[in-house]
Amino acid sequence: MLETVAQAVINGLLIGGIYALVSIGVTLIFGVVKIVNFAQGEFVMIGMYISYFLATYFGVDPLLSLLVSMPTLFLIGVLVQHFLIRRVLGPNDMPQIFLTFALSLLLLNLALLLFTANYRTVHTSYSDEALHFGGLYIPEAKLIAFVVAMALSGALWAFLHTTDLGKAMRAAAQNRDVATLMGINSNRVFCVAFGAALALAGAAGSLLMPFYSAYPFVGQVFVLMAFVAVVLGTLGNVLGALVASVMMGIAESLGIQFVGADSGLIVVFAMLLLTLAFKPQGLGGGRMR
Rank of each mutant, 00 (worst) to 15 (best):
F258C: 01
A277I: 10
I256Q: 11
A277W: 14
A270G: 15
V268S: 10
G255Y: 03
L283T: 00
G282M: 00
E252S: 11
A251R: 08
F258R: 01
G260D: 03
S263R: 13
S263Y: 15
S253G: 13
G255W: 05
G282P: 00
G255P: 02
G264K: 10
F258L: 05
L273C: 08
S253K: 13
L276S: 06
L272C: 05
P280K: 09
D262M: 15
I266K: 04
E252R: 14
E252N: 12
L276R: 07
Q281V: 10
Q281P: 00
G282T: 02
A277F: 13
L254D: 06
V268K: 07
F278Y: 05
L274Y: 08
A251T: 11
L272S: 03
Q281H: 10
G260W: 01
D262R: 14
I256E: 13
L265D: 13
L265P: 11
A251E: 04
I266R: 05
F278N: 02
T275N: 03
Q281T: 14
A277P: 04
I256D: 04
A270T: 15
V259W: 14
A251S: 10
A277N: 08
A270P: 05
A251C: 05
L274K: 05
M271A: 12
A277Y: 11
V259M: 14
G264N: 07
Q281G: 00
I266C: 05
G282D: 00
S253H: 09
V267Q: 04
G264M: 08
I266E: 07
L273P: 00
Q281L: 06
G264R: 09
S253C: 06
L276M: 11
L254C: 06
G255S: 01
